[in-house]
Design a binder for these strands. Sequence first.
DNA 1: TCCTATGGTCCATTATAGCGGACATCAAGC
DNA 2: GCTTGATGTCCGCTATAATGGACCATAGGA
Lengths: 270, 270
Amino acid sequence: MADTLDGEQVTKRARGLDRAFAILEYLKLKREPANPNEIAAQLGAPRSSVYELVGLLLRQGVLETVDEEGRVFLGRKLYFLGHAYEERYDFTRECERVLDALASETHETAQFCMLDGDKYVVVRMRESARPFRISSDIGQPVPLPWTASSRLLLGDLSDAEIRALVPPEDFTLPDRTHLAPEAFIAQIRAATQDGFFTMDSTVDSFTHCFAVPVAGMGRTCIATLCIVASRTDAARNRERYIAALKAAAAVLSGRAPLSAAGSAIGALRL
Amino acid sequence: MADTLDGEQVTKRARGLDRAFAILEYLKLKREPANPNEIAAQLGAPRSSVYELVGLLLRQGVLETVDEEGRVFLGRKLYFLGHAYEERYDFTRECERVLDALASETHETAQFCMLDGDKYVVVRMRESARPFRISSDIGQPVPLPWTASSRLLLGDLSDAEIRALVPPEDFTLPDRTHLAPEAFIAQIRAATQDGFFTMDSTVDSFTHCFAVPVAGMGRTCIATLCIVASRTDAARNRERYIAALKAAAAVLSGRAPLSAAGSAIGALRL
DNA sequence: TCCTATGGTCCATTATAGCGGACATCAAGC
DNA sequence: GCTTGATGTCCGCTATAATGGACCATAGGA
């Protein structure tokens, strides 16, 4: 497997730092410990390199040994760094309150979502009491075309930028059907115009997703607020949910971290 | 300034990975954005190296650009990685509940603390409604001798290991007085024997700290639970607080992450 | 018993990452 | 205007990090 962030030119040797974060990313995705051997195999990276990197990361407390078989997982240091990130933006507190309000008002699952490179991620979430499980966990990257939010998140990019950003394979939906990039872009333009987007979930067959943009930093959409509801609920309460989302987004708009703005553009620079 | 983790032998060139995490650590401590120039100066690192590293970390989303002047801060990717760490241990949920119980029962600030290399850190905290501010933020490293918890956290180490672990300068307390290592070790032995330790805060003049050990993974203390109270409250409720802490620790003991066990030992290996 | 798969260490080679220092820019102070 | 300091870029040198592959140990399975 090649680099996740593929650099400008094809180099023979990978940079230690990039490999290190590939290891962390792998563990984040897998969500359970692994031994260096396995990590190397899954990453397609040289074993000797991975063993060395893992050793370094262990020394730093960025990885931790989990059992006697040498398996490792993400370490406490990452927790502290993540905590410092959170603390920086009192914006996050605002976000929590807005999600609470949304969830208690609609009794549905409410999410705050952003771009992470060329993927969509849920940043914060308030789960409803409803029995069904949600598609995506916090921080787990999801191909953009699979999500309602992406129709808003990419609103500030040109057609060419969108095509450059989204990997071709991401246009294949979970049900193996293919979404034409033109159709995707058309939906983006319409959604950005409307100020909301809704669609049936692509990852299950019984939920419907609502998304509205959170504006800020001179961009029309640096994040989205979403509701995930059962399709029957969604049909019954469509207008109410959209109104609730728009009201919530109004609270948040203009308060999000500046850094959010650089996200998609940063990915394009590569 | 030399490496924070000083390696075995003195090498001329620092490793990129170590520098990178030194940068992250610096920003975590500073708790606000900085430009690469300043980071390099503060770290005593070559500017060209720091500029390159910062560039790489920005590409990874581990750092984020914060303003037009090129200042950077910790990035969203760290938040996601930290979140994955948290999620891994349902132990954390248990911890939250225990802290809530402690806080509501005592109306004091309750903390869950661990070792981080050769420092003490607060991992989780429930702040009381009392007006005074707490000494230490989550994830901020504090010299061990300054804290009540350290008298328990180091209980499994030998005298020699303790002397090797704690940097000499850390024996100088915030009020500039010096604590003799022998006295420190004697307190550790006594506290470990007693199963608790209390002392007036070293960082302010009006609070008193209570700490009890959380056992697990074959060690007598992998973490501590603490209460920070005003000195008058502390005197009035001493026995009650200790009892509450011991009960809370009993709930947690045996459930903490295995990885915690490696912490102090790992630091000694260097 | 041998054979194979899995997990981990070690080492020489060489591409390159980290470094130092030159250079450019801009703003402030005198 | 000239100087100074703070910021960022660029480039060549060389110490060394990343690599491939040999090697070893262990555990099953045939």
